[in-house]
Amino acid sequence: MSIFTGSGVALVTPFTNDNQVNYKKLEELLEFHVENKTDAIVVVGTTGEASTMTEEERLEVIKFTVEKINKRIPVIAGTGSNCTKTAVEFSKKVEELGVDALLVVTPYYNKGNENGIYEHYKSIASVVKLPIILYNVPGRTGVNLSINLLKRLACIENIVAIKEASGNMSYTTEVARQVPELDIYSGNDDLTVPILSVGGKGVISVSANIIPETIHNMVMSFLKGDIKEACRLQLGYNELSNGMFIETNPVPVKEAMNYLGYEVGQCRLPLGEMYQENKEKLYGIIERHEVKKWS
């Protein structure tokens, strides 16, 4: 059984003006997503700025999210690290908080070889019972999970899915063809429908932070057989989705949310303020697409 089907939001972590986690706003965001048809919450991932948060902060955000969602939709927590021991210990702690699954990014910077990456994931999977979603994002990690490595990893019982964010549809098609044991979630908003077309189960979406119902409807339209509507939404909102990446994620999506009145605070350094010209481009895109403001 799939962890979820549909749209999982790669949730931002809201900060206060003094750069602390804003739990009041986080609760508001969680309720917003439940009300607007988001199918799963993904916390403390890339978009959630996990890399600039302490372990204590990440655990508290995960715990808070699990408690507030209260099993209404799945909660998936990012627990990856470039240090295997760190990822193992953190994954064990997170499992105790009651999440539904783990999202584990490929070890980054080290550029591990295939045997090393296999043992990394095996070490994590061996100490938790939760389902694990592999996260393949070579643009950030410097490593692409090969098809042969995915075949090996898919033999581990609780490694059940992959968030595929290589941007390479030829590769994704081969994953679907050769490693059917793994559910595929699009990690690129602009490739959601193409990935659904080769058997994908949904998307883990940055754009869903501001258009959650649209992303949900796109996936569900496709899965219900209304391909024309799914394509209309994909093509109609690609400009907006791509606008979330005119600078490094999550800088643009947080800027967009603040422009729309969400008041989620700024990113933590080393993610700085957007260039003014990019802000103006982003605001123009938002206005053209008539994105609803926070209410």
Rank of each mutant, 00 (worst) to 15 (best):
G112Q: 04
E157V: 13
C83D: 15
E164I: 01
C155L: 15
I117Y: 03
L103C: 02
T173Y: 15
V160D: 08
Y121V: 05
E114T: 07
I76V: 15
P107V: 00
E96F: 07
A77K: 05
L149K: 06
V160G: 04
T141R: 01
I156N: 07
K85Y: 14
R140Y: 00
E114W: 12
L130C: 10
L145F: 09
G142P: 00
I156Q: 03
Y121R: 06
C155N: 15
G112P: 09
L145W: 04
C155H: 15
R72H: 09
G80L: 06
Y108H: 08
S146M: 11
I76F: 04
S123H: 10
G116P: 06
Y108G: 00
T84C: 14
Y135A: 00
E89M: 08
L134T: 05
M169D: 06
A165L: 01
M169T: 14
C83A: 15
I147G: 12
I117M: 10
I156E: 05
L153K: 07
N148E: 15
N113Y: 10
E164L: 05
I117E: 00
A77C: 08
V105I: 14
E174C: 12
K129G: 13
N113T: 11
T86N: 10
T172C: 08
C83V: 15
R140K: 10
V104H: 01
M169H: 12
N136K: 03
E95S: 13
E174N: 15
Y121T: 03
G142C: 04
P131F: 04
V75T: 12
E96L: 10
S146E: 13
Y121F: 14
G167W: 02
A165I: 00
N110I: 05
L145I: 08
T84D: 11
I156Y: 02
E95F: 06
N158S: 10
P138Q: 05
M169C: 09
H120Q: 00
V137Y: 02
G78N: 06
I132F: 06
V94E: 00
I159E: 05
N110R: 12
N110F: 03
G142S: 06
P74K: 06
H120P: 03
Y121W: 08
G116M: 03
N158R: 07
Y108N: 01
N110M: 08
K151A: 10
D100H: 11
V88L: 07
S126K: 15
G139T: 10
N148F: 13
G98W: 01
K163L: 06
I73P: 01
L150F: 05
L145N: 05
A87G: 11
Y109M: 04
C155A: 15
P131E: 02
G142N: 00
N82M: 12
V94R: 02
R72G: 08
I147W: 13
N168C: 10
A165W: 00
H120A: 02
L149V: 10
K85D: 13
S146D: 14
G116Q: 09
G78D: 06
D100Q: 03
E164R: 05
N82H: 14
T86D: 12
L103Y: 01
V127H: 15
I147H: 14
V75A: 06
K92M: 11
Y108W: 09
N168Y: 08
C83W: 11
L134H: 09
T141K: 04
L130N: 08
G80P: 12
I76G: 03
S170F: 14
G142T: 03
K163G: 07
S146G: 14
A154E: 06
